[in-house]
Design a protein around this nucleic acid. Structure first.
Lengths: 214, 214, 214, 214
DNA sequence: CATGAATGAGCCTTCATTCAT
DNA sequence: CATGAATGAAGGCTCATTCAT
């Protein structure tokens, strides 16, 4: 077999250095995510992650200084996923907006499953805890701001504390994905959206909004 | 009191074995709770717990088969605290009932602080996770049952899914104590109760109920 | 068998707690010395030392924070051995004093063999290096002081630099024990003493001293 | 000079493989020496040496089978430096010969600093230890031979053991460079030479030799 | 031949658990 | 029954050495 033939077929699996390294890093991240999700953070060892990614222990430490750093790298990308995105009340029918928002978020979380380790870490990692706290605060403020806008237009209940409503929305959105576990069947995000909307809009106003936006 | 006097008085100050043992067990439980709360479960060693309780390391294992069992013993008493208690809608003014319920629960949780380790454990302990899940399910069912009762009497919104409402109530009650962290100031449980009630009762009906029960 | 009999024979191997612990510590120290001497400091692991002492790895860390600390404990006792003791020129026949001094020191060193690891450590442990340096300086000063005294009485060569002589004595004494390795046969410390004395005393004066002190 | 010119001029600036290889080897050796001297043998990693020499880790192993071999290569050249050179008593004024010999040797040692790692290695490398021992033995014999020659001519003290004198000279020469550390100021090698000569020559004979050789 | 990523044996250290006293 | 020293498995991490590119 000539060398040329070799080149045509044999060298195919060649991948430039950086890409390969990137892939390895990626594999480690994925393994980390999988194992953290499956067994928890403390229960997962660097060695296990490496093995699961198909590399040696030492390789782990080439890409990450330690377990914590890998987790941070994982969270960096996904931290937004863990937090409730704020709904936009005006853009269109609030209920359906909220419903799809809930669904998308739930799907993302379910995908990674990483949110399960967050509580475990937050108690040990003040830094991360602070980051998360601030992020939640920001979300809360955004929701509150949206509520204030529609409140000024007289669209909301006027006997509820908007701050508390904003907080309730955030909590419900954040936990929406967990309903599934409980009920077993698929979560009905429309119903959830309806309930959330009831905290904001009196029924008649909501109806107006929906008609208007159709 | 000198030792001699002790002898003269007889065996009175003698504390029966079981009592002494009970005291040690109690001390270990308290130390465990304190340290788990402070440093987390994994971060707390059996030696530390024993030292904090003023007994030898080996004594720890006379009262508990291992660290996990001590945690279980702690949880056994308090597991109800972690879960949202179901509100009783009829007994009196629903809002104030809910408000005090939220407050009591928050205070209990804050007191023990033990709920912080729950997430850490749940990932490792399928058994406990199952117990928790079932407990939540039961709570959910109870809330749902209550809702159905008042629904049959036409007291609730009739366009909301009661199952979803029940779940929302549970989630909000369960997370109520965390609002404090966010806002900084004390949580206003009355407002929270009001928001929750809005998911259940139309405003006019709620007013009726309140007048009626006063 | 009564308890009394037990006490007479059965409890013989009982050794009070502290003594036992002390023995274990001692065993670890000895093992450390033996292995450091045999294989060098870096080449010796805590695990090896523990195994050699007949205890588990963890036990090592009950008695010493780490390898370095064990070494320090070893050196604490013996640091004086590594250094040349100063001779007393007046007390009696200088040659024989020096000879026995050389011999005693050599025997001590040989016994421990620990001096072999010193150079290995000194390069890494600035602290220890400083301690050793100061100790040597002190020795040098003492020797120099002794030389000055006899120099004032006109007993020494008067064309030699006493500081250099003192240093030479120190070096020769410090290395005396190594002559053995070279020659194979036993070191003749008397001859060594004679040579050292020749750096200090003119032959006639030395003879006078010896006659006088006999 | 531009690259183009290079091409025009032809292959002149091309450095033959062997030369380039030689350069790399040289660079590695120098880096090894520098780092061994600075941080000690065990503390220096192959990676560091390679990086310091500006080559890849793997390249290190193309030139040296392992870290030890690099050290050996370093030592091979310099082993003579570590050992006391034998003085030539006749050539000229013994004192000045010895003084300059001491100084040259000290300078060489100071330059490489490599002698500092010797003790660390000797304990691990029986082979090297043997080589060193034999080298010292040879030096000793040469010094002894020189002493015997002048002894036969009646130039030395006749009541000293020449073997011991030879050993003392060797030790003092070997350690001469360390006096500096102690005293702080520069070592006065003339005084050191004088002291060493006193172990060999009676003062009057030394004076004769000096006059004779001037 | 150079490169530097990958390997994995092995060291240090901790800690849940046991057991002789 | 209490004690706390002892155990040793297991995790975190390093680094000499190899090997695919």
């Amino acid at each position: 077999m000539s060398e040329k033939e070799d080149l045509l077929v044999g060298e195919f699996p060649f991948i430039p250095r950086q890409v390969r390294a990137q892939q390895k890093r990626e594999a480690l991240l994925e393994s980390g995510q999988a194992l953290f999700t499956l067994n928890g953070y403390e229960q997962t060892t660097a060695k296990e992650i490496a093995a699961h990614a198909g590399v040696a222990t030492g390789t782990f430490y080439r890409y990450f200084s330690d377990k914590r750093q890998l987790l941070m790298a994982l969270l960096e990308d996904k931290i937004d996923n863990f937090l409730a995105p704020e709904p936009h009340w005006f853009s269109s029918n609030p209920e359906s907006v909220l419903a799809s928002l809930l669904e998308v978020r739930a799907r993302r979380l379910q995908q990674s499953g990483l949110y399960r380790v967050l509580p475990e870490i937050l108690s040990k990692d003040m830094e991360l805890a602070e980051v998360m706290k601030e992020a939640r605060l920001k979300i809360h403020e955004r929701i509150l701001f949206g509520l204030k806008q529609i409140n000024e237009k007289g669209l909301t209940w006027n006997d509820l504390d908007l701050d508390t409503v904003a907080w309730s929305i955030m909590v419900l959105v954040e936990n929406g994905h967990e309903k599934e576990k409980q009920s077993g069947n698929r979560v009905n995000y429309s119903e959830m959206a309806k309930v959330i909307c009831r905290m904001v809009f009196p029924p008649d106003i909501l109806e107006q909004l929906q008609n208007h936006n159709e």
